[in-house]
Design a protein around this nucleic acid. Structure first.
Ligand SMILES: [Mn+2]
Ligand SMILES: [Mn+2]
Ligand SMILES: [Zn+2]
Ligand SMILES: [Zn+2]
Lengths: 148, 148
DNA sequence: ACGTTAAATGAGAATATTTATCAACTGAGC
DNA sequence: GCTCAGTTGATAAATATTCTCATTTAACGT
């Protein structure tokens, strides 16, 4: 039930929330805190647990609602794992992609976008207009590589 | 309750199944048929409906089991949509990525891989070893672009 | 064709995941 | 402090996915 947590990530989130006329609630800031301090991607349940540790009782629906809001704001990204599960990772607004360790699910950002200079001509020829993309790299972090 | 469907995709699947010592059941071949004839990605429910139309009663669990097997075999790919939903698309083994229309969910393949020649040096420096990747492009097909 | 057998299926229960409702609560601006 | 739209927690409801097990069936050898 801490109450004083505040670092750049939290203020960053606050700024965006204010901009959009949304409230900076303790629950929302706690989600940011839990995500960015973990340094890895977390499941909804793990985030819920983390927030409960900080604030005490917290509704699971609030976590889902917060993650949805944050995803729209570009503050968090949803990741998709080969086993079908999902994770969420903190992500500062700009266009970044993620690289996740399939072992421990730590996340590394990579700001260079592989499709930045990709030529869509071959497919756009068929009348398709590309508007967005999702890229996720899988692999092993140093620690998990050793352990294996 | 048709019984005679058979085209290159079905035999392709049969071949892979035999190779792996797995059975070519009517249900499995029906899933291939439904997927590839639709030309777009389908939800589990849609696939289930399509298979039931062909074979009559069919268990939903069988659809899930089949999709899992096929994904492992590289015959189908699971797609992830921005709204959180999932779709499955037929996909002939080779390394292919997909481009989906967020309107009607039609799927276009694009064989050229954007990360083929991408330099992971910047991130591998941190000890991370890239082993796989997932790429999905979003946009609008010609028809959906007009309709909008 | 026939029998054998491991693999696969269908039914339905059991889980897991996600969304919807609504009364009560709270952050932000005045 | 007062107001009010935005937010939350509790809980139910809706979806989505996985499990179990008795029964069926494809593949193979005869
Ligand atoms: Mn997904
Ligand atoms: Mn690729
Ligand atoms: Zn790791
Ligand atoms: Zn379309």
């Amino acid at each position: 039930m801490l109450k004083d947590f505040e670092c750049t990530q939290e203020s960053y989130a606050k700024g965006i929330l204010r901009e959009k006329g949304l409230k900076s609630t303790a629950q929302r800031l706690a989600v940011v805190h839990v995500l960015h301090t973990s340094g890895k991607s977390l499941s909804v349940g793990e985030i819920h647990d983390g927030v409960k540790e900080m604030l005490g009782v917290t509704g699971l629906a609030t976590i889902y609602r917060t993650l949805e809001v944050f995803e729209d704001l570009g503050i968090v990204k949803r990741l998709h794992f080969p086993d079908g599960g999902h994770g969420y990772a903190f992500s500062q607004g700009e266009h970044v992609h993620h690289m996740v360790c399939v072992g421990c699910r730590v996340v590394f950002d990579f700001p260079e976008c592989p499709v930045e200079s990709f030529d869509y001509a071959s497919v756009e020829k068929q009348g398709f207009r590309v508007k967005d993309h999702f890229i996720q790299l899988f692999g092993q972090c140093g620690k998990c590589a050793e352990a294996a």
